Simulated scan of single mutants.
Amino acid sequence: MAPVQRNVVGIIALVCAVAGTVFSCVKGALILGWLLLPVAFILAIVALVIKNKKRGVAIAALIVSIVGFVLAPLVFLFVVGQAANDAFGGDTVVSDSASDSTAGGAGSSLGAIGSGASNNGAGSSRENPLPLGTTVENDDWAVTINSVNFDGDALVAAGNPFNTPADPGKQYIVVNLTATLKADDSDGSSPMVDVEYVSRDGVTSNSYDNIVVLDSSFDSLSTLYQGASTTGDMVFEVPADSAAEGVLAVRPAVFGDKEFIALQ
């Protein structure tokens, strides 16, 4: 019987399995880990079937690679979740702009409360909206609805000769808002603010449903840097017989938490 020899393939498999498992748990090296783990698994299988070779190291490589396969997707999901949270700007909070100004400036954290927390659930539903002028913010942006003008038809007509009148039974309202960048982003960022009008009957309208051009339109394309603000108008076509009975749904980021704000 031939003597049992060192299993070189098994050793290589074990090295790849250990390195792959480690790299698959390192945020900046996930892909390298994913590449090494399949290689380690295949080499471990090959090392097990080679005759007259020690199998202990091959079995160890197989076990470690399987453990790596289990850990890799868990780490990936954690990294994706963390990245998503950063992209969405974190949790949405609300603050009273008036009281914040007294306490030390708009957007001051002194007035901030958790979304729907100690504010008796205000803002979490259409039936209990936050008052007009409330600042809705996350880690990156602070958004304040400054005013709502119900005489939007006249403003739209005067704003541009190509603006079309509201459909029968509808009217325009003009919502003025301010977005301020809180995050310290060296590349700057554009205010991807999401504002919707929700009617008394629960029907949602968006400012992009109708192409309306005003000189004062909200600028969502320009790049802002920390502390900078932009103020402008969004136009909504809403039911004429119950325009004032709706609410605004405001998100400081497109996929952030929604807060409801009263129109007046």
Rank of each mutant, 00 (worst) to 15 (best):
L43K: 06
I45E: 03
I45W: 12
I45P: 00
I45S: 07
V46T: 09
V46W: 08
A47W: 06
A47F: 03
A47C: 07
A47D: 05
L48Y: 10
L48D: 03
I50W: 04
K51Y: 05
K51P: 15
K53T: 13
K54D: 13
R55S: 10
G56M: 10
G56H: 04
G56P: 03
G56V: 10
V57I: 15
V57Q: 02
I59K: 10
A60D: 03
A60K: 09
A61W: 08
A61E: 09
I63N: 12
I63A: 13
V64H: 05
S65F: 03
S65W: 03
I66S: 04
I66A: 13
I66R: 00
I66P: 00
I66W: 08
V67D: 02
V67P: 01
V67F: 10
V67K: 02
G68T: 02
G68S: 07
G68N: 03
V70F: 14
A72N: 02
P73L: 06
P73A: 02
P73C: 09
L74V: 04
V75G: 01
V75M: 10
F76N: 09
V79N: 05
V80M: 12
V80S: 12
G81L: 10
Q82R: 15
Q82C: 09
Q82E: 14
A83Q: 11
A83H: 05
N85Y: 14
N85K: 14
N85W: 14
D86K: 15
D86E: 15
D86Y: 15
A87N: 09
A87K: 13
F88L: 06
F88G: 04
F88P: 00
G89M: 01
G89V: 06
G89A: 08
G90I: 06
D91S: 13
T92H: 07
T92Y: 04
T92A: 07
